[in-house]
Design a protein around this nucleic acid. Structure first.
Lengths: 211, 211, 211, 211
DNA sequence: CATGAATGAGAATTCATTCAT
DNA sequence: TATGAATGAATTCTCATTCAT
């Protein structure tokens, strides 16, 4: 029964995430969520007191997962530049899978209650990048700079570059790779101030070799 | 009479913009717009056939204004780096006045009709920056790079950095200046790959001394 | 000035009739009427206290005109059968010009106030036919029958046969003639109980010649 | 549960029919329908996607019922004349129960979507009579004639004769019988061209005595 | 007198939430 | 517990009528 409870709860969260990812908040109505989860609308209210709280959990959950991955990268052994690039690319890669979901992270929430969660998410993402930036500056790898702004800009840059709703899928993997690496190049350049790192994808060459 | 017409139309647009800026699309309901404009709901429909079209006009109008300014900067006599910086700072400065409005530009729109206008807006902003990037690359000032991604990242970067809705005003002008210049530094660095601009944090040096 | 007044009044009635004829009551909104009459909405209220009263006048006016013509036929020198046929054909002919107007006569009125006028119209039409029927029965030309029902049925029969909205215009005059005479044959047969009068269009042949 | 569903759906249709019968389309507003059905407005939308579709169903339903009965008569063993009379009388009899509903069949519909259903209904009624006419002509019972016009005229004749809205009920059953048979006499005469039926006004003679 | 902008009472529809079964 | 039908407040849009100019 405990099992079942947890099971249903998870199904609801999953269904909601999928609906948001596919059609934004607008499509994630309680009836649709219930249908997608294979439950009744009433059942949802046994697990979540309101739509807002459900959405909050979905966001929080999705972000938590993302943060774990990013933190692992941020705590890695590579130099800050590499970690920055890896983090951006890792995030970007997954965001491409679910544009609408990523979109929802920055979208005007239907409900003000959800806003708080959204803000928290962004801050959390920012924190990961801040950590890397701090490292890089401390180690002399990055020029001194406003890490709050830098982190926010990174999040914003790839969000915007990835998320704008273009043709639904279609684009080949090749294009996707190119896009992701163009974005990460942008971010690395922005932080390091080193012009060419991005185009040549060799991550560990010494700085002197760059132009 | 003509006067009156134009006057009311303007009042409606203004009221709508204000409501969106304050509370997002959600708060800008027709009744609220009417009240804010000092009119009846019916009166709005004399000027706009639907809520969607009103929103579209508000967006379009705000963007048009912005684009004119940005284009003037983009077409200026300065080198591309300077123009980039000026454009970003100019935009950022004004975006700070109306966070929520800027927010609405990237928000998930209530109405699919509005979405078209939103996309167009973003493209328009992007185009301005693309022009500068093209110039700079052609003139050897910027390293070769994907200008589509670059333009999108710029828009995203400062949108994110500016727009996160904190307490409505609060921050002093000094902070604002610093914020704006940190953002523009980020963007300039990202495009030029030159770390210079950011390191010197002296916010008040005369413009001529920069470059 | 008196001139002008009457002029405007007429223009309004005319415009309303035209609008009803073209699109039914639904299209005849006060703003549309005003535009069609080349006046302001306010001006209409100088001549008519309400939309309902305007509609009533339009109906009454249109019917008065019709009744005058029909009464002339009813009072003619021909035998009752001929007059009946002529009346039906005359009415039918003109109804074909403005189906929607004829339609409006039998349509559920938008406003209950208009209903009274509509009823009056139908009664008036019925009265014309009743007169003819009475004549014909009195003169032994028609079998004895319920003239109230007969008159109503005649009005209904050709209304239905003519008014059902088929392809807008198109049909040639030949078809129109055939239609009108099929209807009048139906009505004449219904009243006289004589089977073949209609097909052979010779109106005055002696009864013995018929089958 | 299934029970409940069907029950409510039926209640809604019933309530709508009653409201239309009493006050026409105009009175059958969704709120009124809901109230009459003992439900909330929202509940109606569980069963019908829109007001138009509800109206269409009400019409269709009423017509289907009618058509079944009429077709049974049209397919009966009697001669065409008798079947014609029976069909008209049967229809007329029931139309007298719900004048306004019959009225709505010929009324200018509020919504263009409903118009299609209305047209279909009339055509369906017409078809029944066309079948009888065809039979009668083929069997030499009726003179040759335009059956399209004939069918339309029949429908129109008794619609008009029955439907003119007088005081809601009032008239005694005796009057009703006489009215119905006057109408059917009119129609039979119109089609057969035989004056017999109408002249003998004795309403209560046994059916076998008629021809 | 004429104008036509403004009014505002409706009417249809949506959807989160509740609650009897 | 689960169900899903029912609720009803909220929202957009319409159009006859009024009234300041």
């Amino acid at each position: 029964m405990e099992e079942r409870l947890a099971d249903n709860r998870g199904r609801i969260v999953l269904a909601t995430r999928r609906l948001i990812a596919e059609g934004g908040f607008r499509e994630a109505q309680m009836a649709a969520v219930a249908a997608a989860a294979g439950l009744s609308t009433g059942a949802i209210y046994r697990y979540f007191p309101s739509k807002a709280e459900l959405f909050v959990e979905v966001l929080t959950e999705a972000v938590r997962h993302e943060i774990v991955i990013l933190n692992a990268i941020a705590a890695g052994p590579e130099d800050a530049t590499t970690r920055l690039r890896l983090a951006v690319e890792s995030f970007a890669q997954r965001a491409l899978e679910g544009r609408h979901l990523a979109y929802a992270f920055i979208a005007e929430p239907v409900d003000p209650e959800v806003e708080a969660a959204r803000l928290h998410s962004r801050r959390a993402f920012g924190d990961v990048f801040k950590a890397i930036l701090r490292d890089g500056i401390a180690g002399g790898e990055f020029p001194d700079q406003d890490i709050d702004v830098g982190a926010a800009c990174i999040v914003g840059a790839f969000t915007e570059a990835l998320v704008r709703p273009v043709a639904p899928t279609a684009k080949a993997v090749a294009d996707r790779q190119r896009l992701v690496s163009a974005i990460s190049s942008f971010c690395v350049r922005a932080i390091t101030g080193a012009a060419t790192a991005a185009r040549r994808r060799a991550p560990l060459r010494p700085r002197s070799a760059r132009r």
